Amino acid sequence: MKTKNLIAAAAIAPLLSACVSTETVRFQASGNQQAMVRDGRQAIVSKRKNSILLVSPASREFQSGARPVFVVGITNLTKSPLDFTVSNISVHQKAADGRTVALPVKTYESLVAEERSKQVAQAILVGLAAGANAAAASQAGYGTARANVYSTTYTPYGSYNRVSTVTASYFDPTANAIAQANAAAQNEAMISSTVEQGRRNLSTLEQSVIKDNTLLPGEWYGGQLHFEPPQSDGNNAPKSYTITIVVGADVHEVEVLQETAKS
């Protein structure tokens, strides 16, 4: 069945991903900033008059060519509310030829839209697999039997033997019912798993991605920051970019160097 091919592909995927190169990041601290290590990951603290910003990669390594994901934490040092909006975050890469390239930030809403699009595509693939599974099961129990029949013909001039092939079709309703029941159970499990995975993905985005927020006095707020991957110049040269985050009247500029992970 085609579902076996899907299972085989799923088994091979982790082996292929193991061959993908990875990159790490480190921060270049400037005035009022301090680079440090938090739980084995690089991090940087940026302090301004009204706020403190903590930035760290969401994982120790990024897959090369994939979107970087950082964890951002913000605290309000004032006695008044401070507004933070994702639209006030920008990321710009410093290309090797001197150009400045914008790396668009992905908002929560755009990430949800992407996830829903992926779920539609996944649902189509699962539907095709389920249809193929059901079609194959519907043919179970049908078969053809062949047998050779030997006969002897007698004539006034002697006798001769003849072999005839007899073909008969048959149907086993029990085998058909078992196959269709198994296919129905497999399809239900496959569809349920896909729906549940989609629900978990949306829930993860809701809980983890940074969004617009008003910080109350002394309050900490944060979440994941996603943006488009930095461009490569075709070699293993480090990629340099600046993450600019505005909190109230404060402007925090974080310098990042992303380079191939050392084996």
Rank of each mutant, 00 (worst) to 15 (best):
I243F: 02
A121I: 03
Q224T: 11
I210T: 02
E114I: 14
A175R: 13
S169E: 12
T167Q: 09
V246M: 04
E228C: 06
A175N: 11
P173H: 09
P217C: 10
S192C: 03
S193G: 06
V195R: 10
F171K: 09
A123L: 04
A145S: 14
T167C: 00
S117Q: 14
G248Y: 04
T194A: 14
L216C: 10
S138D: 13
Y241A: 06
I243L: 07
G141L: 02
T194Q: 13
S208V: 11
N201Q: 14
N182E: 11
A181M: 07
G127S: 08
Y150F: 14
V126F: 00
Q207K: 13
P229G: 08
D172Q: 08
S192G: 11
A135C: 04
L125W: 08
G131M: 06
R146E: 13
S240Y: 12
N236I: 07
A185K: 09
A181H: 07
A185N: 04
V149R: 07
A183F: 00
A123T: 14
A130N: 11
V163F: 05
S192D: 13
S159G: 03
A177R: 15
Q119W: 03
P173I: 07
V246A: 06
N213I: 12
E196S: 15
D212H: 03
P217M: 08
A145D: 14
G218A: 09
G131V: 05
N161D: 12
T244P: 01
T174S: 10
A123D: 05
L202F: 00
G127T: 04
G198D: 05
A121H: 11
V246T: 15
N148Y: 06
S232I: 05
A177P: 02
G143R: 05
S193Y: 11
R162V: 07
A113H: 04
Y170P: 02
G141Q: 04
N161F: 00
R116C: 05
G234K: 05
G222C: 05
G158C: 01
D172P: 05
A134M: 15
E188W: 13
N236V: 10
I243D: 01
L205C: 08
G248F: 01
E196V: 14
A113F: 03
Q139D: 11
A237P: 08
T152C: 02
Q186F: 13
T155N: 04
Q119K: 08
N236C: 05
N236E: 12
A113T: 15
Y241D: 08
S169Y: 02
N161E: 10
P156D: 11
N236R: 11
N213W: 08
E114A: 13
G223S: 03
Q119F: 01
W220Y: 14
S159V: 03
A175C: 07
R200H: 10
D172E: 06
S232M: 06
P230M: 05
Q122C: 02
V126G: 01
S164R: 04
L215F: 07
N148H: 09
A113E: 14
A177Y: 11
A185S: 08
S232W: 02
R200N: 13
H226K: 02
Q139M: 12
R162K: 12
A140N: 07
I210D: 02
L128C: 09
V195K: 09
V163T: 12
E228M: 14
S169C: 03
A175T: 13
Q197E: 14
